[in-house]
Design a protein around this nucleic acid. Sequence first.
RNA 1: GAGACAUUAGUGUAGCGGCAGCACAACAGGUUGUGGUCCUGUUAGCAGGGGUUCGAAUCCCCUAUGUCUCCCCA
Length: 436
Amino acid sequence: MKTKKQFQSPKGTFDILPEDQKYWEKVRKVVARVALGYGFERIDTPIIEDADIYALAGGETADVVEKQMYVFKSKGGDMLALRPEGTAGVMRAFLEHGMAQLPQPVKLYYIAPMFRYEQPQAGRYRQHHQAGFEIIGDQDPVYDAQLIHMYLVVGEELGLKSLSIEINSIGCAKCRPTYRAQLLRYYRSRTAKLCKDCKRRIKKNPLRLLDCKEEKCEQMRVNAPNLIDHLCQECHDHFKNVLEYLDETGVPYVLNPHLVRGFDYYTKTVFEVFLEDEHIEGGNEKTHQRAKLALGGGGRYDYLAKTLGGRETPGVGAGLGMERLIGVMKKQGIKAPPLYKPEVFLVQLGVLSKKKSLRLFEELRKAGIVVAEAFGKDSIKAQLRSADRLGVKMSLILGQKEAIDGVILLREMETGAQESVEMEKVVKVIKERLKK
RNA sequence: GAGACAUUAGUGUAGCGGCAGCACAACAGGUUGUGGUCCUGUUAGCAGGGGUUCGAAUCCCCUAUGUCUCCCCA
């Protein structure tokens, strides 16, 4: 017989199954707790936005905008995009709702799906989730540092080991063009020796030259002008302050002068969080060394608001990849508490007791007792087997005889000891046994 | 967008040109109304499509998906 087409989740997407939900829940809880602790309030923005906000925010060179966005035409004719990242949408909401009228800065966080059209691999999906933090309305370097510190706190509260922060400053509209020109001058005479991608980068996004992993390009970079040495006074001081604040809170960081980020809107501080290499386990030997996936990244974006048509408003933000975070948790053997753990199992035998069970089930549930059942099964054997599988402490057995007498059997699963309890007292007795 | 490898029941696997098997899970039983261990049975699979061959899970081609590089990023 020919089977019908087997549907599967679209390429690069996945189902978060019940067995994994506890990890998600744990991360969500920690993120929310840390966020609130630092004065962040939650914001949820639509999954779709006007495609233009990403085009404007990203600039023409951002790869995400260039070829990784899901863009489609809305019925009215506007171009919409599935959001590839969170910051632009949050800034749009900030401007749209006049949040500049609130005491500044405004701190917002979100946990939301993001979409990118690209070739999926482990840790890279077409739909992934980010926990994001945005601090809008204040340019003080203390907030850059606070955000980075929060990364560490989230990591700590999740029990993660060996997070490391890489940080850099990419300057502002004043100093970056000057630097870019110098960088180009350096590279232009050496174009021939670069890999083909870097040849493209020279034209489109010279800063990305710093990021290439090709060996010949890495060598070339050694003598290339350094971004940090070419910051203007303001950016220099800002960056210095960020580092000082980080020192103050004991955040370990590594300066990485080659760190640049994909979105054009970043200014001054940029940073990424990694896992120390030696703690990445699994995978084969080859991938072992290379596997240095960023858990998250972020930076300052003082021009974004203006780019989107609002008043100039400074901001700094960071995103954490939920899937990657959970992946690391699992690798490091971090446990998450189960979300469903029934305490009592209700067994019913016969038509009358099945009916009576329904009401008892409600009573127990309302009393806050987590009660499981297998009403669809009629044999006591099968029901007790289910009870056993669920690992309940007690089972309640309501047979025909008990139903008529107004009692119920209470079975302690570990010992197998059973006793008869009056129906009216069941809830109370169980509560006592569970020490509720 | 380019390259490499992979895909056998829900899961993990064996079979490498000659009968598609095993384990776990699920479901039903092992005489009356009692779980875990044990036993029996049932359900369920060669990713899809072509080709080579007397014969294909096995060899070849195409497609899809996954994993890994590149690219880029969370």
